[in-house]
Nucleic acid binder design. Structure first.
Lengths: 223, 223
DNA sequence: GTCTATAATGGGATAGAC
DNA sequence: GTCTATCCCATTATAGAC
């Protein structure tokens, strides 16, 4: 063509860094930190291994960068949903269900409708949350979400002053425990139901989960 | 000493193989398959690395051997507890709680009172159950427990014919999801409660868990 | 059964040309 | 910013002496 030759600049750092992050996010979320090599990531991202070091330093720093890329947006979504749920009026049962739903919906929304990156990020978060405490270097990250949990517990205790704070804590812990297992997509449900239910159909799961959890509260004294 | 020199026979295969299994069980349960090297295991077991190959072949075979060592006894314990729970009479709520407790108690008993090996084995099972389905080579093992789950779902459906089988499935899946997270000892509860509750105090957790789960069933139609 | 030695590969990380 | 080349160490696994 007669166009003046555009400078085909292969130096496009932002895009490359993002591709590395995407590849790392996907692989780490499926096989865990130790199950993935920088070579795996570089191959998936179609870049040279050395570029992972150039952009992110070490493997651990890359892992942290993956976790941090979406952390703020994710946390804001969950916090915002709680603020809306706090404004719901009605019976204590209705208000309780609203808060429970507020926790899970931003997560499910991002996983199902946020694009593949978000789906992988959510699974990675669940994987991290399901690691034994010994695995040290992710703990500082995990604690970033803990204040969010505290605000949910507070909201539920406000709705149920007849419960002890400890029992509200237990209920919310059980809820989180379910959530982290579900989001990691272990395939347990698929196997055990012989395919009738799908681990990755989170939308179908939400209503059942919210009903189950809300009723569970009554087992620990919620009226 | 004047004793006749006893033949100090360092060739004591059963003990050595067991020590390797114990070390592997402990380390795999804390850091996962890829997070542990055969060197780590050999060091922990105080044997030479080559002995892990002599006794078990490859790393994967060692991992499988760890999973299989206690599998039958564990499954029998859970199946036996269900048989006892099926014999309980009373209200549907009481019978439901009996079945729920029957599932969790053999596991908690072994983890808390079966010795350190059992504690590590239980945590390893939970770790495996919390892996994304992609991690292929453990799936054949996991499915060994699936028929047990089906028998629990059957028992609960017998107690609650007013529920659809699907909803009983959902409830039990949620129960299992909680259980696997709890048993992996992620430390989430410890952090979020600022130490008031302990992940590893399973006995304190069982009553809360059973009450929560049993009540959860009412959210999906149990009368 | 246990040990030493070593093979063969893959891993994280860096240097320096372009 | 990107690429090639390379370092150095850890890893799984095997061979063969004891």
């Amino acid at each position: 063509m007669g166009e003046p030759a555009k400078k085909i600049d292969r130096r496009r750092a932002p895009e490359t860094a993002a591709r590395i992050l995407d590849a790392a996010e996907s692989l780490f979320s499926l096989r865990g930190y130790h199950g993935v090599s920088l070579r795996d990531i570089a191959t998936e991202a179609e870049v040279q291994v050395a570029l992972t070091h150039y952009h992110f330093g070490s493997k651990e720093e890359l892992f942290s960068a993956v976790l941090e890329r979406r952390a703020e947006e994710h946390a804001l979504g969950i916090a915002g949903a709680l603020a809306e749920a706090r404004a719901v009026s009605g019976s204590s049962k209705e208000r309780r269900e609203a808060v429970i739903r507020a926790f899970i919906m931003p997560i499910v929304d991002k996983s199902m409708r946020g694009g593949p990156g978000w789906k992988n990020y959510i699974r990675l978060l669940a994987l991290v949350a399901n690691m034994p405490q010994e695995e040290g270097f992710v703990s500082p990250f995990r604690s970033n979400y803990d204040h969010l949990i505290a605000s949910y517990v507070d909201a539920l205790h406000d709705i149920h002053p007849e419960m002890s704070e400890g029992d509200v804590h237990w209920c919310f812990f059980f809820f989180q425990a379910m959530t982290t297992h579900i989001l990691v997509e272990s395939g347990m449900l698929d196997r055990q139901s012989s395919g009738r239910f799908k681990s990755n159909d989170l939308d179908a799961m939400v209503d059942k989960l919210v009903s189950f959890v809300a009723a569970g509260f009554t087992g620990l004294g919620a009226k």
